[in-house]
Design a protein around this nucleic acid. Structure first.
Lengths: 355, 355
DNA sequence: CTGAAAGCGCTTACAG
DNA sequence: CTGAAAGCGCTTACAG
């Protein structure tokens, strides 16, 4: 601990100067100091200048925390993430999503607070960050957090989740996207398919798929049914969304199922798949087609260019931030936005190879 | 504004419940409530359980702001960024850097607050976010902010900057990196070079290059001198660090200077350059070599794989976070870390074409 | 094991 | 235009 000079309440005291220090040094009351910063019109310009000069000199700036406490707002938007900060920043999907959120924050003069999953050690006393509300992200969410947030009357919006009646939410037409990409592949004649899917987390066994993953799987099942197939007819791998995991899983899928097409449920996984196929000497799309989901900026850079399902990720972030701001202002609506998806047919998918 | 029931200090009051509400409902004092959350050993288990149950029931959770104010710390690390949040999240370099910072935050149980450049409208009353300290990032920094932070005794560390004696800092051997990549290209016989550089910002005219850019330029000049050239002998474009800007600038450079090698001072710019050359039908490295700087993860995905200067970006973030934590704890050291760079020779650079 | 009191640093009616 | 006072919601010695 730092040594603290006790009795020093004057400017001689160690630590950050407070409004009292400024008041003493400028020979005015603390309110005058406050007015100098917040209500220029309440005091004479001369006094204000003097106070500000003194403040500048002794290095005073109003304590943000105290200000926030008084005001009852923080001017910060929280983003409650489904994974560790390190993992999130590694995932281009989130970079893009946070870009959207960031645009709104920039525009509204808000800061952005990134919060990793709540430590569920003590679900009672969640140490919420100092924010005005949360954007709750991600496939793996809505365990206890959502109920907790609602109970504590903290404004929030759900993203990539299972929409709830009375909570604002932003989602994407995952079902339609998955359906479209599957029909594309099936239309090209592919029947030996592998689905490179996203790890649904530990409680899938208990509760089945949820959120976007559930919708995407439903789209896949629907498309399969159209040609008389079921999920049992495709190879399935479920892995964390990293390029490395996509790479490894692809090698396994190829070995075990020798599919003619790999349907990745995320572009990042598709990147890994293309890499793996390249390293295996398998031509894309000559021998194996690969499709993604998301249409990250990087998807168009890849060679071959990736066929994928586009979703407007930045728009999703922007919309979520807008909805949150409305919720914070207690404009008591509960808007639900469903953004469209569209199939981007590029170079990584082609007709099933002859034979 | 929300309607506020005035005199209601009981649990009937609107808005979030406070410790008084819990105390009243549980028939104990406010301190007891506080103890239930913070000092389990100060009260009986039975009482604690009762208080916690009541808290849970009425949806009470201690106000974070008040807590922080009392404690004098926020458990949040601020990252002061050189650009708007939207731009930052668009740049893979920052994604990687923030990943490093995130790793430390994850480990230490800290949250991460992203702060765009301070609005210099009112340099006196900068509305600092509620954080324990700042990691100050970026080429364009150290205008007024650094002096302000120091004046206000806010702990901070400088990253990618011009190190100062008494401020912790983390930098990279930009000079060595630039020197190495230039020697590589010159060694391959290239003499008609174009440098695709980073926009130094508005006050370059006044103060010249600073920070990493200054060091990289110095490395370039040194390498040029070794073969009897000067900066006047190379084409130079200075643009914002986006793939699009790299793309456009490359087209211009090719038209105006027809270089045999393009030295990009950032991988993101190099990505754009490779794209532009591809679209122009110019072979890389057959006709034009391209090099980058950073060695982003994506650099190895590119085809041809990008020759570039590797810097340990995530480590930089991690080190910066560690230094900041030390500074916050007032372990009064001012460590300076200089991380190495290394030249990654891959496929995008080759010998100067004959003729 | 509990309760009244002070205080973290600020802002804001309110009376002068 | 200024100053004393209350209060934002919490925590923490302190005396019981």
């Amino acid at each position: 601990m730092a040594a603290k000079t006790t009795g020093g309440r004057g400017r001689a005291s160690r630590g950050k100067p407070t409004s009292s220090d400024v008041a003493a040094a400028a020979g005015v009351s603390r309110s005058a100091v406050s007015f100098a910063f917040n209500r220029p019109d309440y005091i004479s310009e001369a006094t204000r200048d003097r106070i500000l000069a003194v403040a500048q000199e002794i290095g005073y700036v109003p304590n943000t925390l105290a200000r926030m406490l008084k005001a009852g707002q923080t001017n910060a938007l929280g983003v409650l993430l489904p994974q560790s900060l390190a993992k999130i920043m590694e995932n281009p999907y989130y970079a893009r999503f946070l870009m959207g959120v960031g645009q709104v924050c920039d525009h509204e003069g808000l800061t952005m607070v990134l919060t990793p999953p709540l430590r569920d050690s003590m679900l009672k006393a969640i140490p919420y960050a100092a924010v005005d509300g949360f954007i709750v992200c991600g496939l793996e969410t809505d365990r206890g957090e959502v109920a907790e947030l609602a109970r504590h009357r903290i404004p929030f919006v759900l993203v990539d989740s299972d929409p709830q009646e009375d909570v604002p939410s932003v989602d994407v037409d995952d079902h339609g996207g998955a359906l479209a990409v599957m029909r594309h592949l099936l239309g090209l004649g592919h029947r030996r398919l592998a689905v490179l899917s996203i790890d649904p987390g530990p409680d899938k066994a208990v509760r089945g798929y949820r959120g976007p993953l559930a919708r995407r799987m439903a789209g896949i099942v629907e498309a399969l049914a159209e040609v008389g197939l079921t999920l049992d007819d495709v190879a399935l791998a479920e892995v964390p969304v990293t390029r490395t995991d996509g790479y490894r899983a692809t090698k396994t899928l190829i070995r075990q199922a020798s599919p003619t097409a790999i349907v990745a449920l995320s572009d990042v996984l598709a990147f890994g798949a293309v890499d793996a196929l390249h390293d295996l000497g398998i031509a894309v799309p000559g021998q194996v087609s690969v499709t993604g989901f998301d249409d990250l900026v990087e998807a168009a850079w890849l060679r071959p260019r990736l066929t994928t399902v586009r979703q407007a990720i930045a728009t999703k972030g922007r919309t979520a931030a807008d909805f949150l701001i409305s919720a914070i202002r207690e404009e008591d609506q509960h808007p639900h936005q469903l953004l469209g998806t569209s199939l981007m047919i590029r170079e990584s998918s082609g007709p099933v190879p002859a034979g």
